[in-house]
Structures are given as structure tokens and as C-alpha cells.
Computed example of a mutant assay.
Amino acid sequence: MRVATWLTLGAALLPLSGCGVAALPCRLASATLKIVPVVGHAAATPFDACSSAID
């Protein structure tokens, strides 16, 4: 089971190039914050700018 998890994770990250991997934490934080009602999109703005700057 553990090997399958690592293989799935590796296959999901394979299409990401160097910039995509570097911007991944910013994108994940942004997507997570956007779930929060009312203030989510405003709180995610710096993380959107971070991922845009890396790309």
C-alpha cells in the first residue's frame, strides 16, 4: 500500500517542471485559503502573487 502511494504521488508530480514544483506550496496555500468563506480570496492574494512571480 505504501509503495502505491509513493508511485501515485510521483506520477502526479512528474508533469511539473522546475518552476511548477517551486510554486506548488504557494498554489496549495492559495487553494486552501480560498475555501474559507468571506475572507478566503483576500487572504489568498499574496500566495497567488507568489506563484505568479515564480512562474
Rank of each mutant, 00 (worst) to 15 (best):
T45D: 11
L28D: 00
D48T: 07
L13H: 00
L24W: 10
T8F: 15
L28K: 01
F47R: 02
A53Q: 08
L24S: 03
A31I: 00
A43F: 08
A4N: 01
I35K: 14
A23C: 12
R2C: 15
V21W: 00
K34A: 12
C26H: 10
P25H: 04
F47D: 06
A22F: 03
L7C: 09
A44N: 03
V36R: 03
P15V: 01
L9S: 11
A12D: 05
A31G: 11
A12I: 15
G18P: 00
V38Q: 11
D48L: 12
C50A: 11
A31D: 15
A42Y: 10
R27M: 11
G20V: 08
V36C: 09
L16E: 03
C19G: 13
I54M: 09
A53I: 06
L24M: 13
L14E: 04
G18Q: 05
H41T: 05
L24A: 09
R27G: 00
L7T: 02
I54N: 06
C26P: 01
A23S: 15
T32F: 02
L24T: 04
A22L: 14
D48C: 05
G10N: 02
T32N: 08
A42E: 13
S17M: 04
A31F: 05
T5N: 10
A22K: 07
A11W: 04
C50L: 10
C50Y: 11
I54L: 15
C26W: 08
L28M: 09
S51L: 03
A22P: 00
A31C: 09
W6G: 01
S52G: 13
R2S: 15
C50T: 06
A22M: 08
P46V: 03
P15R: 03
T32D: 07
P37D: 02
P25F: 06
I35F: 03
I35D: 01
G10Y: 11
S17Y: 05
A53T: 12
F47I: 03
T32C: 15
K34M: 07
A49I: 02
R2Q: 12
G18A: 15
S51N: 01
M1A: 13
A12T: 11
P25N: 05
P46Y: 06
G18N: 09
M1L: 03
I54C: 10
A4S: 00
T8M: 05
L28G: 00
L16H: 04
R2L: 13
P37K: 04
V36A: 10
S51H: 09
T45H: 11
L16I: 08
L16F: 15
L14V: 07
D55N: 11
S52E: 14
R2G: 15
P37Q: 02
V39R: 06
L24Q: 06
P37M: 01
L14M: 14
S17A: 12
V38R: 13
R27I: 10
A42Q: 13
T5D: 13
M1W: 12
L24Y: 10
A23V: 06
D48V: 05
H41N: 14
C19N: 14
D55I: 01
G18V: 15
G40K: 06
I35C: 04
A4D: 07
P46Q: 03
L7D: 02
I35W: 12
C19D: 10
F47Q: 05
H41K: 11
W6Q: 06
I54W: 10
F47T: 08
L9C: 15
S30M: 12
V21H: 04
L9K: 11
C26I: 05
R27C: 02
K34L: 12
V39E: 00
L14W: 15
L9H: 06
P46S: 00
T45I: 07
A43Q: 12
